[in-house]
Simulated assay, not measured.
Amino acid sequence: MGALLSPTAARAAPEHAAVRQAMDEAVERGVPGVTAQVRDAHGRWDGTAGVADITTGRPRGADERYRIGSITKSFVATVMLQLEAEGKLGLDDTVERWLPGAVRGHGHDGRRVTLRQLLDHTSGIRNYLEDPVVQKRLTTKEFLDHRYETWPRERLLAAALNGPPDFAPGTGWHYSNTNYLLAGLVVERATGHPYAEEIDRRIIKRLGLRSTSLPGTDSRLPGPGARAYTRFGGGAGDTMYDITEFNPSWAGAAGEMISTSADLNRFITALLGGELLPPRQLKEMKTTVSAENEFPGERHGPGLIRKRLSCGTVVWGHDGGLHGSLSQVAATEDGRHSIAFNFNTDRAGDVGAVLDAEFCGRR
């Protein structure tokens, strides 16, 4: 493993011994490579472990772009809250108000679901990834034959509504990508622009995130970047497939974005530091509901996850996983200590161990 230190962070290197060890152990347990950046009171620390390419043995780099998956949700939710601050929508508006007739069928009713319930996953709307046809196409080897296929949002929404809701709105919690597919549509209806343009204008350009993008239907991963790998069966003995290129339209507003550890740290620091939202909206983002039924130790707010680590430390951020990539960004509540990192596989490693190592200082 190698570590790249900024001048101001050189003296901080010993303090990151635990996270260096956690990254090395992730590689020992089957992750091809890890790239990470920490920002704290000592400055910046960049660390890597393992390889970017299992064929050539090229090591992972500190400045690599990678697919951030559901961390995209934090960007979408931030835009929604900015629109609320501007008086263009309200989180207690119904989905029906913004998308008339869009959420109907098999017990789903957009007249009973609020925008807030979309953003904190209390809507009860079925996850389109749980539709058997969509699931088979996206999560088995069948995906290899369809990796460049464009998935219209209407098709994904129809798949979600092709079964009953998980629960009545506001009476439970279940992670559903459909919530953010709909949130992206609401942003477009409220602004008259694609949600990608709003994220680009309101966040990416504003913060100078030069390596962050929304690819739409573009299957390419801009360089510099690592190859991304998956085992569709999930077992250590299964074939490792290079899945670096694919059309991410099936993820859309729920998970299409590409970024780097440096850009993600800049984003989470700006968000928690109040650069992107007024105090009222930031407070709403930190208003959480329990996700213990699926993710022990977690509470979810609109686009933001509150995690209590093994040592009791609380961090805020989001994680993201999709074909060939597991990513995480997390920070203390004031944003002054943050980490962003990526595994270039979705089928090995423990991102929680890396978080614990950085914020708790032990394995």
Rank of each mutant, 00 (worst) to 15 (best):
A102Q: 04
T35A: 15
T139D: 08
H193P: 01
D40T: 05
Y175K: 11
D350W: 13
A12V: 11
P278L: 01
V113Q: 04
F232S: 06
G317F: 05
G252S: 15
R67S: 04
P165F: 08
R280K: 14
R220A: 15
R29W: 12
V134Q: 01
L326A: 05
G105E: 06
A13P: 06
V79E: 03
L214R: 05
G216M: 12
A253W: 09
E284N: 07
R201Q: 14
E198Q: 10
L4I: 13
G2E: 14
L276S: 01
G184L: 07
M285A: 07
T35L: 05
A52E: 02
E154M: 10
G235F: 05
E96Q: 11
H108P: 00
S325I: 00
F232A: 12
A12R: 15
R362F: 08
E130L: 15
D350G: 10
A9K: 06
S290E: 10
W250N: 08
T217F: 01
A3F: 13
S211H: 15
F295Q: 14
I243W: 06
G90D: 14
F75Y: 11
K283S: 15
G235M: 09
E333V: 15
S259L: 09
G163M: 14
L182C: 01
Y241W: 15
D24Y: 00
Y175N: 00
I204R: 13
A9W: 09
T94V: 10
T239Q: 14
V95M: 04
D145H: 08
T150R: 11
I71P: 05
D40Q: 04
T48Q: 12
T94Y: 01
Y128D: 04
V79M: 00
G184E: 06
K88G: 13
V79I: 03
S310W: 02
R44W: 08
A196G: 11
S123V: 07
T72K: 03
P165W: 01
G90R: 15
P152T: 09
R44S: 03
G237T: 15
A251Y: 03
T114A: 06
N265R: 01
G110M: 00
A160Y: 04
T217G: 12
I68H: 00
G274Q: 07
